[in-house]
């Protein structure tokens, strides 16, 4: 979470805690209980909007039946999972999937010996996947080169912090095997990334997403067909070790804007990188 997010969270939590602390001014009976219940609901909503807004926001919009027009001619239905355009009575619904290019974090722990073999197989696997897809789709990768020294320093800092955590855990009497293994795994992961840079690999930040469009004679028909296509893409792309999840809520608007302008700096897509692991 960034500084701004922490600031927003602190102010909001402060108000809720003041309400809880002063709830007894409404008495000690049922009214007090009601005040506390509402404060707890507010606390849950704030926590939900902070950590799970991609679930909470579409649910709220669906419940309230609110649709959004993000630009002229486009429309986001209340389910907040598609962008719909009506062209002469035909409805075009567009949806997105995003995922991690390196789906399994374990892969980052060691430089695989069979990496060359995997790379040699990749073109054929890709071609076979595309051949099985019988509807229009777009596969995008936004990449930006990162400063080598800065990335190396960051990784070394992270590795040092994990090493410090590990030594503290080793010294403590209640050593937790699971926690030690986890920290050791993280250290190996950072070390592998440092090694890769030392071997001459250029660090890049990347954001990958897949887009598909479905057509229907009604909005519902188009959105239903879109969901079907997205599910099919999820299955097809799993062959490439890609775990894809459907984009809903506010990220839908961000990705929709990418259609008309690619992000200008690495920092402007940093929040999207978080989601990509």
């Amino acid at each position: 979470m960034d500084e701004l997010g922490i600031g927003y969270l602190m102010f909001s939590l402060f108000i809720i805690f003041v309400v809880i602390a002063t709830a007894n001014t409404v008495g000690h009976g049922i009214l007090y209980l009601l005040a506390i219940i509402f404060a707890i609901i507010a606390l849950a909503l704030v926590a939900g909007m902070n950590w799970a807004d991609s679930i909470l926001y579409p649910a709220a919009m669906k419940l309230l039946g609110i649709s959004v027009e993000p630009a002229k001619g486009y429309h986001v239905p209340k389910s907040q999972d598609a962008i719909v355009k009506n062209v002469n009575g035909l409805f075009y619904a567009t949806g997105y999937l995003t995922g991690n290019v390196f789906a399994y974090r374990f892969k980052q722990e060691s430089i695989g010996e069979d990496e060359d073999q995997q790379m040699a197989d990749a073109p054929e696997r890709w071609e076979r996947t595309v051949m099985n897809i019988k509807f229009p789709f777009k596969f995008h990768i936004i990449s930006a080169g990162r400063e080598v020294q800065k990335v190396r320093d960051e990784l070394e800092g992270k590795r040092s912090y994990q090493e410090y955590q590990l030594s503290r855990l080793m010294q403590s009497n209640s050593s937790n095997e699971m926690a030690i293994t986890d920290i050791q795994r993280k250290i190996r992961m950072f070390q592998t990334q440092i090694d890769r840079i030392a071997q001459g690999e250029k660090p890049i930040a990347s954001l990958m997403y897949v887009e598909t469009t479905a057509v229907g004679v009604s909005e519902k028909a188009a959105v239903d067909l879109l969901s079907e296509q997205l599910r099919e893409l999820q299955v097809s792309l799993s062959v490439l070790d890609l775990q894809m999840s459907r984009i809903v809520g506010r990220e839908l608007y961000t990705i929709f804007k990418f259609n008309f302008a690619v992000p200008l700096t690495e920092a402007s897509i940093a929040s999207e990188f978080d989601r990509q692991g």
Partner: peptide, 12 residues
Amino acid sequence: LNRDPIRYSVQL
């Protein structure tokens, strides 16, 4: 290839 963000796409 580049320091600035570039989008590479394959479109069917």
